[in-house]
Nucleic acid binder design. Sequence first.
DNA 1: CACAGAACTGACACGCGTGTCATCCGTGCG
DNA 2: CGCACGGATGACACGCGTGTCAGTTCTGTG
Lengths: 212, 212
Amino acid sequence: MTKAKVERRQQILSHARDVFAKRGYHTAKIDDIVAAAGVARGTFYLYFEDKRAIFEEIVDRTIARLGMTILRVDPHDSARSVADQVRENIRRIVGMLLEDRATTKILLSDAVGVDPSFDRKLQSFFGEMANLLEGSIRDGQELGIIAKGDARLLAFLTMGALREVLFQIVARGAEYDQEKLVEAMFAFFRSGYLRVDDVPVPARKNTRARAR
Amino acid sequence: MTKAKVERRQQILSHARDVFAKRGYHTAKIDDIVAAAGVARGTFYLYFEDKRAIFEEIVDRTIARLGMTILRVDPHDSARSVADQVRENIRRIVGMLLEDRATTKILLSDAVGVDPSFDRKLQSFFGEMANLLEGSIRDGQELGIIAKGDARLLAFLTMGALREVLFQIVARGAEYDQEKLVEAMFAFFRSGYLRVDDVPVPARKNTRARAR
DNA sequence: CACAGAACTGACACGCGTGTCATCCGTGCG
DNA sequence: CGCACGGATGACACGCGTGTCAGTTCTGTG
């Protein structure tokens, strides 16, 4: 006995993941996948309908896991402050997405532009995320713990910020201390970073050279 | 005389833009473009090397325009506060990108995953943007007008937030008052939105129903 | 050890979309 | 009026990658 069906399936799946992450959906050929997995072309089609199907399975799994990862923030939890709960959520999301970088790269960049119906699926998933976040922001605004303003916009700003950083980390090989990352993001959402008022900075400390 | 060469070229280019924005790079076929432009297949190849070339031209133009749009922030300008200069930059970027939504959609979503060398080009462009922003953030930190923290990270958070909002606007048809948008983004970068400290919210104002 | 059934193989056919090119058109000039 | 030339046309050939399937090997069972 060599391999149980599930194992072979998993083997193909995980090599496909690597190939998709490396080459992107359109550039990745079935031949690349089977070569990486060390099986013949025909074997691939024994386990998966077609290229699109295996890709979809990878993305769907990740979407599902990401969905499970997010915790509802309860502002009335007497044990944990809202700040801690938000921090914890960021930590969980970052942790989950950095755990399997290949898959994250696929979700955040290769899954775009596969085909129109796939695009709709993605849009609707990220839209769902945004709705969730928007709801939480609205709740927070009613409680006075989130600044006033268009909640949907804030949701997108937040998602975009998170998304970009994670994308940069998984797409290039950037290494970051995970806990520092979480704290920096939290600080960003909490207080932004511009410490300016609306008056010009008056003087220059040391002039390099006076105008000639 | 029907059309000058430049006009015909422009005509194909602008219809190609619409088609790419609507269908995405891989789904858009040359036949779609020529049909939209109302010319024959052969005519297309009289004006453009191939599909990749016309797409690249669209993206390159947009990249160039975007590059021109960004102004260097001078913290010692006695006429305009840093806050105003930052606001102005956001306004210009948002304005420029919302001016031609089809092209913006192409830049922000369809240009990903075209092919490996195109991906590198895009990465390097956005990387360049990030460097610029990172530099400005560093300057600001030295002047004490930007909060301490990893400047590169802050740059990515900022870019991602901007990017996502603009993408949502151009991808779905969301309408926003442009000036409100700018102000909301500025407020977000300036102060974030979480108004929480690290202690739990103690009491609930009005309980909907007591636990049954 | 023989045999059946399952798992695997890779050469092949097919479809799709690209880019070409022989031919056609229309405009302006002699 | 006719000729020449740049521009436009679209049927076609070609290449590439997918999915299939007839044949082979492997496995475990009587």
